[in-house]
Amino acid sequence: MTQVPDQTPIPAAGPVGGATRGPWARVARDFARSPLAMTALVVLALVVLAAVFAPLLTPQNPYDLMQLDIMDGMLEPGSPSAAGGYTYLLGTDDQGRDLFSAILYGLRISLSVGVVAALVAALVGASLGLFAAYVGGRTETAIMRLVDLQLSFPSILVALMILAFLGKGVQNVVLALIIVEWASYARTARGTALVESRREYIQAADCLGVPMSRIIFRHLLPNCLPPLIVMATIQVARAISLEATLSFLGLGVPVTEPSLGLLISNGYQYLLSGQYWLSFYPGIALLVTIVAINLVGDQFRDVFNPKGRG
């Protein structure tokens, strides 16, 4: 730290360090303070990488019937394949599908559904919330009553109704999740924006003749982001588990694109007959993913909330 000498006689010169760091750099530094959160972040990164590079990491494509060998059906974890060449690390299902491969492919579906749903919901919800806060009046009332209405129904019920109406399918699940989740973003965004828009820098921008759209996107939005980021992180986990629930109930993704939830559901009938691995390992994968995301989200919340720091 080199103290920069002040040219002017300003005695109370701030703690001006050598290098300049933006607010986001500070967030990164504070985030790295917690070993638990860093572990969770690493685990999450591994999970995401495993899902992205699933074709390279798995011995077979579990949904290419040509690669399955019915003779390998219901093998315990660690069994070698009949044709040789590789080991079924986590066992196989009744069609000889390698469960490890199925889990990685399932992660792809689960993660992409969760992330896409959470991000689109965040975009829609946050825009509506910011708009409501800045415009006010009847528009605000209309949007916020819609939010109240949406939030007064249990999300699983709403999602089930939508899917019963639209039918199965990855897109339909994503759509259902967006409809279920946008409202909570809108509420958070409006609350934060109401506080921020009374701050003096917004008024200063007003005085300086900065146009409204620029005030909303350059000034209001970046300062409302912290709570929204926390929420989006945790909502990804929520979306994944909701998708798993829907798939488990048979209303989620189709059998041709099985997610972790569907894998659990498929193995469920064998759970008590000794083939525990069919449900157990997909369940562990789901658990690890969700816990890692939640830990990362919790740390974000602590970093962004100065009051939370002791």
């Binding site: 003096e200 820098y201 200063a204 005085c207 300062n223």
Partner: peptide, 19 residues
Amino acid sequence: RRRMQMIFQDPISSLNARM
């Protein structure tokens, strides 16, 4: 409006922290 400008009281909140 360009011809008149305002300076506020709170030196902390009158500048956007993310700019």
